[in-house]
Simulated assay, not measured.
Amino acid sequence: MRALKDNALTLLFLGLFLATVIGQAFVGLANENEELLRHRMAPIGIGEFVTSSSFLVDLSENWQSEFLQFFVFILATIWLIQRGSPESKKPGDEGAGSDEEQLVGEFARADSPAWAKVRGLRLWLYSNSLLIVMGLVFLLSWLAQSLAGVQVANEEAAQHGELAMTWAQYVVSPEFWNRTLQNWQSEFLAVGCMVAFSIYLRQRGSAESKPVGTPNGTSSVESE
């Protein structure tokens, strides 16, 4: 029970993720079979659908926009601040911070992660590991989206007697960037709103909000 309590936030979102992916699979299958029946084609099963390009392109399209959002936000909050927002460091704290502030090298604590206590490549990798992983997941999901997307586009082109596109042609096509930018703009809007709204609005008890009585111009870090 202690492990469940200590990891409740992660487990909640993992459960929600799995539930929505399963829901997307079954709803998407129903939609796909409706389209097939309209064209007088045989319906397909769940196994065939979840391994299809049409399912993969929708799944990876959402993933890449989410991880891009966090990659940009993590990178931007190193150097940029928003006074009064709990999503930002306080003014004057811009930058990567000193070794003493970051508890690395000789300033590491006894219980600090092992790679925080060393110097060189391992320390650099660990110091930037969150940004690196977010960036890699974004790139891999973007690649998956583009590979599945060109397959779907070519299937549709074949139905209309049109020529197939190469991957290079697809990733510079209006169709690809129309789908991609629709997702990106919504993610950037959501993050921008969270940063700005949290200056003036509160949610008592949430780690994403300042304490209710904290002045609007003060971040939660400054109030501690």
Rank of each mutant, 00 (worst) to 15 (best):
L36K: 13
G213F: 02
A168D: 12
E156V: 15
P113F: 02
V104N: 00
G97T: 01
A116P: 02
S60Y: 09
S65F: 03
Q169W: 03
H160N: 13
V172C: 11
L125T: 11
W142P: 01
P215R: 02
L56S: 10
E87F: 07
R109Y: 08
E156Y: 10
T166K: 06
E32H: 07
V27E: 12
A116F: 12
E87P: 02
Q64W: 13
A144T: 14
L123D: 01
R119K: 13
R38F: 15
W124A: 07
A158T: 06
M194R: 11
E106N: 09
A108R: 01
V133M: 13
A190I: 11
F26W: 10
N128F: 02
Q102D: 08
S219R: 00
P215S: 11
E48I: 07
I199E: 01
E34V: 11
G92D: 02
D99R: 06
Q151H: 13
K90Y: 06
I44V: 15
W124F: 11
Q159V: 13
G120V: 09
Q185T: 13
A114Q: 11
Q185R: 13
N154P: 01
G84P: 00
R40M: 10
V137G: 00
M194N: 06
L123N: 04
A19S: 12
V172M: 14
P91W: 02
R122S: 14
V118Q: 03
G95W: 00
N31F: 13
V50T: 04
G135I: 00
G217N: 08
R122W: 10
A108C: 03
N128W: 07
Q203D: 10
N183T: 08
G120H: 03
A157T: 09
G45Y: 06
L16F: 11
L139G: 07
Q64E: 11
H39R: 14
L4F: 14
T214D: 03
T77V: 07
Q151A: 14
F73I: 04
V104Y: 01
A42Y: 09
W167I: 10
S88N: 00
E175V: 14
W167D: 12
L29P: 01
G28M: 02
E87T: 08
F188Y: 09
L56F: 09
S146H: 03
E66V: 15
G97L: 01
G205E: 04
A96S: 06
I78G: 06
